[in-house]
Computed example of a mutant assay.
Amino acid sequence: MPGGRLSHQDRLDIADGLAGGLGYAEIARRLERPTSTISREVARNGGAGGYRADHAHYATASRARRRRTGSAATDVPAADPRRAYVERFAAMMVEGGLPRMASRVLALLYTSDTRTLTAPELVRELRVSPASISKAIGYLEQVGLVHREPDPVRRLQHYVIAEDVWLKAWEVSARTNHNWAETAAEGIAVLGPDTPAGQRLAQMAAFFDRLSEDMSGGAGFQDCLAVLAVLQGTVDAGAVAAALGWPVERVTDVLDYAVKTSGEDLAEQPAGEAAVGEA
C-alpha cells in the first residue's frame, strides 16, 4: 500500500466517502491506505459527522509547522491561497444544492481572469478526469450557467461563464421551487387531500408555491413581463443596453424570457380570463 502523507485530493475523497455513508475500511480500500490511517485522520479532524477536507488539510499543515520548531518557515510548502479559495467557494455552492463537481468548475471559471477555460485547463487545475469535467459542463450548460465557444485557431472548446450567471442561477432555483410545488400537488391528487399524507403534501405545495412566486417577483412582476413581451418588437435593445450598462445579450435574454413567461401565463388561464386580459 502507498505510504506518505494524505494529499488534499485524498482528503476530498475521504469527505466524499463519509458523505456517501461509506465505512472507514471501504474508504481505506479505495484509497489503498490502511484503515487505521483513515480512522486517525477522521478522528483528528472533527469525526465522521464534522470532517471537512479543506479544514483537515490546513490543520495538518499547521500541526506540521508547529512540530518543526527551529526550522525555517519556507521548509513547509505553503498552500496555494487561490486554490484554497476556489474550494471554499465551491463548498458554499454545494451547500446551496449545486452538484460538487459542477460547483468546482463554476468556482474556477468565476475566479479566472478571462472567465473562460478549456477542458484540459479545467482538468489540470482541478486535478480530475476529463469525464468528470465533461459531466459537470453538461450540467452547467443545461441550466444556462455556462456555454461553449470554439477556439478560432485550435480544435478546442472554450467554456465561458454566463455574463448574468447569478440571475440565471436564481431562475433555476425559482423553477426548482415551482417543480416542487407541482409535484406536491400531483401527490395530493393521488393520495387524497383528506389523508395525512395528502395534508402534508398540501402544506408542502403551499410553501413552495409561495416561495416560487416570491422569487419570481409575484403578480406585479408578471405584469411587467407581459408589458415587455408586447413591446419586444419595438424596443431598441442596443439603446436599452447602453442606458443600463448591460450587454445587449442580457437585454435580449430578458425580452425572450418575458415572451416565454407571459405566453405560459396566458396559456394557463381559462379562455374567458385570457380574453378579458387581452381586451
Results as ranks from 00 to 15, higher is better:
Ser103Thr: 00
Arg65Met: 11
Ala84Ile: 05
Ala73Phe: 03
Ala48Asn: 03
Val105Pro: 03
Glu95Arg: 11
Arg104Gly: 00
Leu106Glu: 02
Ala90His: 09
Glu87Asp: 14
Leu98Tyr: 06
Arg82Leu: 06
Asn45His: 14
Asp54Glu: 10
Leu98Asp: 02
Tyr58His: 13
Arg66Gln: 15
Arg68Trp: 08
Asp75Gln: 08
Arg52Glu: 08
Arg88Ser: 07
Ala84Cys: 05
Gly97Val: 06
Arg100Pro: 01
Ser71Thr: 14
Ala90Glu: 10
Asp54Asn: 07
Val76His: 15
Glu41Arg: 09
Ala59His: 10
Gly96Trp: 15
Thr69Glu: 09
Thr69Tyr: 11
Ala79Gln: 01
Asp80Thr: 06
His55Asn: 01
Ala91Gln: 07
Arg65Phe: 09
Ala61Ser: 08
Val94Arg: 08
Val105Asp: 04
Gly46Trp: 04
Val42Glu: 00
Ala48Gly: 04
Ala84Gln: 05
Thr69Asp: 04
Tyr58Lys: 08
Ser62Gln: 12
Tyr51Val: 06
Pro99Phe: 05
Ala73Gln: 04
Arg100Leu: 02
Pro81Thr: 06
Asp80Leu: 05
Met92Arg: 11
His55Ser: 02
Gly97Met: 05
Glu41Lys: 06
Ala56Asn: 11
Glu95Tyr: 12
Arg67Ile: 10
Thr60Lys: 05
Ala72Val: 12
Pro77Trp: 02
Ala72Cys: 10
Met93Pro: 00
Glu87Thr: 10
Ser71Leu: 14
Pro99Glu: 03
Glu95Lys: 12
Met92Thr: 11
Phe89Asn: 09
Thr60Val: 04
Arg83Tyr: 02
Val76Asn: 10
Arg67Val: 07
Arg68Leu: 14
Asn45Lys: 02
Pro77Met: 05
Glu95Asp: 13
Tyr51Lys: 13
Tyr58Val: 12
Pro81Asn: 04
Ser62Phe: 14
Arg67Met: 14
Glu95Thr: 08
Gly70Thr: 10
Ala61His: 08
Gly50Tyr: 00
Arg88Glu: 10
Ala53His: 15
Ala64Asn: 13
Gly49Ala: 11
Ala43Ser: 13
His55Lys: 02
Arg100Ile: 00
Arg100Ser: 03
Arg82Gly: 02
Ser103Tyr: 00
Val94Asn: 05
Arg44Phe: 07
Met93Tyr: 02
Arg88Trp: 11
Ser71His: 14
Ala48Phe: 03
Ala61Val: 10
Pro81Trp: 03
Gly47His: 14
Ser39Asn: 10
Ala43Arg: 13
Ala56Thr: 07
Arg65Gln: 13
Ile38Thr: 01
Arg82Tyr: 01
Ala64Leu: 15
Pro77Thr: 10
Ala79Cys: 01
Ala48Tyr: 04
Ala73Asn: 04
Ser62Asn: 11
Gly49Phe: 14
Arg104Ser: 03
Ala59Trp: 12
Ala64Gly: 13
Tyr51Gly: 09
Arg68Glu: 13
Ala59Ile: 03
Val94Gln: 08
Val105Met: 07
Arg63Asn: 00
Ala43Glu: 08
Met101Trp: 03
Ala53Lys: 12
Pro81Met: 06
